Computed example of a mutant assay.
Amino acid sequence: MRTFSFGGGWQSMAALVLAAQGRIDFQTFLFANVGQDSENPHTLTYFERYAAPFAAAHGLRLIELERRIGKDRQQTETIRGRIINSNGSRQTIPVFLTNGKPGKRNCTYDFKVLVTGAWLKAHGATEDNPATVAMGISLDEISRANTGKAMPYERLIYPLLDLKIRRADCPRIIRSAGLPVPPKSSCDFCPMRKIHEWQAMREQDPARFERACKVEDTINAHLAAKGKRPVYLTRMGRPLRELFKDGEQLPLFATDDAGCDNGWCWT
């Protein structure tokens, strides 16, 4: 079994085009959707409008997966739903602590690794017969390639590295197929988002920004009830809704992209 982990961003969309062109040998792409209320809505729109039709037109399988829970596995769990429905007790995402460092995360493992793994195992992947799973890590992100973190039922490979493709090459590859370049993929309230991206969201889509603030508020209400310090969606040490007021200029430092293990996110 050979599958490609499709994140919805530049690298994975370039890989889909490369597969259609016969430059990489993958027919099945797996998209672990972390939730209609959790994924970047622009990523979901691109997936439906461009990625899925392109895959179908070229005989490729682009399969959308969801995290299923409950005794009969009929319920869909999303990252935002987990946080809001647990009143913040299951925060899941790598929020920033008061010292500016990111905390632990379960989002990638629970909503991408395990979701994809469930599909692989249901289709025959085992420790004795592992699936080959390709990740969309480009040459400029080679430090994120880590085959040692593969699950027992999979073997991780990095075809973009073999082709010496950099992130900057991906738009050209995508446009060569007559497709627009997709937006950067990420959870809609991911703490790894850069400061200028938060500011753009606040200015261009205030309702979406407010939904992210609600996630932060919910987590902190839970922590306050337990007498614990607040956490934040940025490393600024202040609530998200209090940033960018009165034309305030904030540092435009990047967050630590190494927080995304194995390339499951942002590709």
Rank of each mutant, 00 (worst) to 15 (best):
I165R: 00
A125F: 06
G237W: 03
A55N: 06
L62N: 01
R144M: 11
R167Q: 13
I195N: 07
F47K: 00
R105H: 15
L233S: 06
P182T: 09
S38G: 05
Q249D: 12
D217E: 11
M192E: 02
P230S: 09
F54L: 04
A14P: 11
A134Y: 01
A118H: 07
Y109G: 02
L62F: 08
G178H: 06
Q204H: 10
D110T: 03
D246A: 14
K121F: 06
L243C: 08
L233V: 02
L223H: 14
A19M: 05
G263Y: 08
T98Q: 14
L30C: 07
V17H: 05
W119K: 02
G22W: 07
E39A: 00
V34W: 00
Q204G: 04
A145P: 07
A20Y: 13
E154N: 04
T132A: 05
L240E: 06
E242H: 14
L114E: 15
L65G: 03
L139E: 13
P191K: 00
R68H: 14
C107H: 01
I174F: 12
D162V: 13
A122K: 07
M1H: 15
K194M: 13
N106R: 09
A118E: 13
F6Q: 02
R23A: 10
G88Q: 01
Y50T: 05
Q21F: 10
P191V: 04
P239Q: 12
A125E: 03
V113L: 02
N33R: 01
P152I: 03
R67V: 00
L139K: 09
E127C: 08
T147W: 05
E66F: 08
R238W: 05
R175T: 14
Y46D: 07
R167K: 14
S185T: 07
A212C: 11
A118T: 11
A177D: 09
A118M: 01
L30D: 11
S5P: 04
K104F: 12
Q74E: 09
P183G: 11
A20R: 01
D140I: 03
D169C: 12
F47M: 11
A207Y: 15
T116Q: 13
R82S: 05
F6D: 00
D257R: 04
D162C: 03
R155E: 12
W266F: 15
M1D: 13
F253I: 10
S143N: 08
A57I: 10
N262Y: 00
D169M: 10
R211S: 14
G88N: 05
A134F: 04
T116R: 02
S5G: 11
L139H: 11
G148R: 12
N129Q: 10
I165N: 04
